[in-house]
């Protein structure tokens, strides 16, 4: 049976992890490769690396980081941030990334989704969507949530899937950082609308929140950053809890 996935997200700036990390046996908390290896051992099902610098120089740094990560870990990982073209993606995949995620660049140039799916297959194209509610309607935002658009979450997710996205990663900006749980209603609707896998992001604070995302939000995977980085919810404990609640989990 296909298990539900637990995905830690690592923010990368100039080749280093940004958010503080609270792993006792980690010498250098800023080293993404060591951190990735640690997560793999803990039982993370996948990893996401998000390059938050995304300048030209940083993209080169990211490409070599991807190669190092690919040498060190034996679970799948996704790379996002600043990807604008087929050649950007080609370099990352060649260096060993399994999937890439695009966000603002897909909104600005939706054809990029088609082009990437055509060139590399839908399975490696994750479309990340940041949205927040404005007057009861979920509006897509760009540039890490700074720039609002007229696009509606549900329309855009559907379009991305139709264009060849293999997976949707939805972050609710209203919930992100709140630790009050994922945007369950929006997730449930997305999951209903889409016939591709859905990853929930934004709001995880307790084990129950992860459970709710699976049981009520009907998602295929959950992504979180700080609860894992700060050791608030260790992955092995989360997995044991979810399994005890009847969620199919990889042991």
């Amino acid at each position: 049976m296909l298990s539900k996935r637990i995905i830690p997200c690592l923010d990368i700036k100039d080749g280093r992890t940004v958010k503080g990390v609270n792993f006792q046996d980690l010498q250098d908390a800023g080293d993404p490769v060591a951190l990735a290896a640690q997560y793999a051992v803990q039982g993370a099902d996948e990893l996401v690396f998000l390059d938050i610098t995304a300048t030209e120089d940083a993209r080169e740094t990211m490409a070599s980081l991807v190669l190092e990560v690919s040498k060190a870990i034996d679970i799948p990982f996704t790379v996002g941030g600043g990807i604008r073209s087929v050649s950007d993606v080609e370099k990352l995949l060649k260096n060993g990334a399994d999937k890439i995620s695009i966000n603002s660049s897909a909104v600005r140039n939706p054809q990029l989704i088609n082009d990437l799916a055509q060139a590399f297959g839908s399975q490696c194209v994750v479309v990340a969507i940041d949205a927040k509610q404005i007057d009861q309607s979920w509006r897509v935002h760009l540039v890490g949530g700074k720039v609002p658009t007229e696009l509606h979450l549900f329309d855009w997710a559907k379009e991305a899937a139709d264009r060849g996205a293999g997976e949707i990663l939805f972050t609710s900006m209203d919930h992100d950082g709140s630790k009050h749980g994922y945007a369950i209603d929006a997730l449930a609707r997305l999951s209903e609308d889409l016939s591709i896998p859905l990853i929930a992001s934004g709001g995880a604070g307790t084990e129950q929140h992860f459970l709710d995302a699976f049981t009520q939000g009907k998602v295929d995977a959950v992504l979180a950053a700080s609860v894992f980085h700060y050791g608030v919810i260790p992955i092995p404990i989360l997995k044991t809890y979810l399994a005890s609640q009847g969620i199919p989990i990889r042991k």
């Binding site: 296909l2 839908s122 889409l194 016939s195 896998p197 295929d220």
Partner: peptide, 14 residues
């Protein structure tokens, strides 16, 4: 059959 399942199947299976 993508009317019954999410396709691609993506993740860990036993």
């Amino acid at each position: 059959d993508n009317t019954l399942l999410k396709v691609p199947q993506m993740g860990w299976n036993s």
